[in-house]
């Protein structure tokens, strides 16, 4: 029995974890994208722009800093595939949807907040990321990344 047990521990368990991570991660991602699209639909038409200066015909009534922030982490499947990709280089395709979700979610949170507070637009929108922590003691691996969207919410008179 021992050799089968060894095989199971060495190959079976990592494979099982990988499969679970893939299916769970994929389901969560799909659900999140559906949610993002629905929410984007709701705030559609609300101006969120990156101008630092106002167009001359805009008259601002009040202004306030608004932020939207989200912290994302990788699932095991994405991490492993990205690790393989790291051996030869190239586009880390498994990370792309993850960061796309993070960007859109951060902007959405900021926009929804601005809209809820009665503002008419958000200008000078900026995006920033920061690495939160290392996943491992040796300083390698990323536990999570914060995606921060911020801008100036204004009311127009």
């Amino acid at each position: 029995m021992s050799i089968y047990f060894e095989l199971f521990v060495n190959f079976g368990i990592p494979l099982l974890v990988l499969m679970v991570a893939y299916f769970v991660g994929n389901a969560i991602e799909k659900k999140h994208f559906r949610e993002i699209r629905a929410r984007e639909e709701k705030v559609h038409g609300f101006p969120v722009i990156s101008f630092a200066t106002l167009p001359p015909d805009w008259r601002v009534g009040s202004a306030e800093l608004v932020t939207g922030s989200v912290v994302v982490s990788l699932d095991y499947f994405k991490r492993i595939i990205a690790g393989l990709r790291g051996l030869i280089g190239g586009r880390v395709k498994t990370y792309e949807p993850l960061l796309d979700r993070a960007r859109r979610e951060a902007v959405l949170r900021m926009t929804e907040d601005a809209k809820a507070r009665g503002y008419d637009a958000v200008i000078n929108v900026r995006l920033e990321t920061s690495r939160l922590a290392n996943a491992r003691k040796d300083g390698r691996g990323t536990a999570g990344v914060e995606m921060l969207a911020f801008g100036t919410a204004i009311t127009l008179t």
Binding site: Y22, F77, I81, L84, R85, K93, T94, E96, L99, R103
Partner: peptide
């Protein structure tokens, strides 16, 4: 910003 590649295709190609 998202490549139109199925994650399993990416995984299979790499492996």
């Amino acid at each position: 910003n998202v490549s139109d590649v199925h994650p399993l295709t990416e995984a299979g190609t790499l492996v």
